[in-house]
């Protein structure tokens, strides 16, 4: 490098703060709260997951109810079959359907809570004070 009369040599300045964390200083919860576009994407994802779960429970319900009715209409023998001392329609509609509904409800709640827990872990990790 040539001496230019006391003027320091030019130095090319580049950013190389490799150790610096390029990241968001604000949690995603704020995005949700302030309805930024990013928050909107997350909200849409949560709603889609929950709605898909809800609709699958509903379609299972409709299928079960409609399927059983079709069975009764299409197969006359099913109307008079006796199981455990009760005719099949009475057994299913009078007894079996209640524990089945309860189990469905319980499964749904577990799934819905799992979706929410995963969402919460992404949006506001537990380490943060909340």
């Amino acid at each position: 490098m040539a001496d230019r009369g006391g003027v320091p040599a030019r130095v090319r300045v580049t950013s190389s703060r490799r150790s610096a964390v390029a990241g968001r200083s604000r949690p995603l919860a704020t995005d949700l709260d302030e309805q930024t576009e990013l928050g909107d994407v997350y909200l849409a994802g949560l709603m889609r997951a929950q709605l898909r779960l809800s609709l699958s429970v509903l379609s299972a319900l409709v299928l079960a109810v409609a399927g059983f009715s079709v069975l009764l209409i299409a197969v006359p023998a099913a109307r008079t079959t006796v199981l455990f001392g009760l005719p099949l329609p009475w057994l299913v509609l009078g007894v079996a359907i209640y524990p089945a509904t309860w189990l469905t409800a319980r499964t749904y709640v577990r799934q819905a809570e799992r979706i929410e827990a995963e969402f919460a872990d992404v949006v506001s990790p537990r380490s943060e004070p909340s």
Partner: peptide, 19 residues
């Protein structure tokens, strides 16, 4: 609408100041 949706669907665990 979006603010109401945030309120309806966000689990209570997530802290929200405004919604």
């Amino acid at each position: 609408t979006t603010r109401v949706m945030v309120r309806l669907h966000t689990p209570e665990r997530i802290h929200l100041d405004h919604s």
